[in-house]
């Protein structure tokens, strides 16, 4: 864990400092929104990270379900990764929602609107809250299996949510990346986006690794104490 911190912390802090400098001082002020648009450099990376880590969670859950009988050791590692990435999803999702609201208030004049991307993002948040609640409410070995199953449900549900809300209504601006003409960013804004994206990515990955290692330690301690209890019972039986 120390090694992760020693490598990850300086890199991510340096990248984030550079990102802050780019976003606050180098990037030009947006023509219509003014300085408030600078929150975009934090909103966008958080949203991207919140869309990235659910895939890690889903993949790790699938590995867990596939290997929980044949290779329990690998399954345990996969479950630790699933837990770590689920918590990271929730954090980035919360930041994305909060910064989005702060941005929407001055620009749209409202804190919240039930539009396609906002609502599906909120649903993602809700589903991962319920995922972590399930993990908290269950005990013993079944936690991991049940959570992995719920993760599969989440992965299938989120695209359906997105499509259904898309048919329902929409207000969020069309995609900045790969959107239609006139939807792109000014080229001078790109460095700030990239630096922040890189910085938050390294930061997120570092936290996932730390959380993963913490969970592995917890699993190890749990197995160790179970083993000791087993040995003690063998002693008394003899």
């Amino acid at each position: 864990m120390k090694k992760t911190l020693l490598i990850g912390l300086p890199i991510s802090l340096a990248l984030l400092a550079m990102g802050f400098y780019q976003a606050m001082y180098v990037a030009p002020t947006e023509a219509t929104m003014g300085n408030i648009q600078r929150i975009f450099y934090y909103h966008f990376p958080s949203a991207i990270m919140a869309l990235l880590f659910p895939y890690v969670n889903f993949a790790a859950s699938l590995v867990f379900l596939a290997t929980r009988r044949s290779n329990p050791l690998r399954a345990q590692a996969a479950d630790a990764l699933a837990l770590a990435s689920a918590e990271m999803t929730l954090i980035f999702c919360s930041i994305g929602l909060a910064t989005g609201m702060l941005w929407a208030r001055p620009v749209w004049g409202i804190w919240w609107t039930w539009d396609e991307r906002l609502t599906s993002f909120l649903m993602l948040w809700l589903i991962y809250v319920s995922y972590l609640l399930l993990r908290r409410f269950t005990a013993g070995g079944q936690t991991q299996t049940l959570a992995a199953v719920l993760s599969v449900f989440a992965a299938i549900d989120v695209p359906i949510v997105y499509m259904s809300i898309r048919w329902w209504r929409t207000q969020h601006p069309s995609p900045v990346i790969g959107g239609g003409p006139n939807s792109g960013l000014d080229p001078s804004m790109w460095p700030a986006v990239w630096w922040n994206l890189a910085g938050w990515f390294v930061w997120g990955v570092m936290l996932v690794i730390l959380r993963y290692k913490l969970e592995r330690k917890r699993q190890w301690t749990e197995q160790e104490s179970a083993l000791q209890a087993l040995e003690a019972s063998l002693e008394t039986a003899r």
């Binding site: 809700l126 609640l133 399930l134 005990a139 549900d157």
Partner: peptide, 22 residues
């Protein structure tokens, strides 16, 4: 799924409602 969990009566709506939104 929530059968053998603590406060299962509570847990069922908590995991059912988000998935049922669409």
């Amino acid at each position: 799924l929530s059968l053998r969990t603590r406060n299962r009566e509570m847990l069922l709506p908590l995991i059912l409602f988000p998935v049922s939104v669409p």
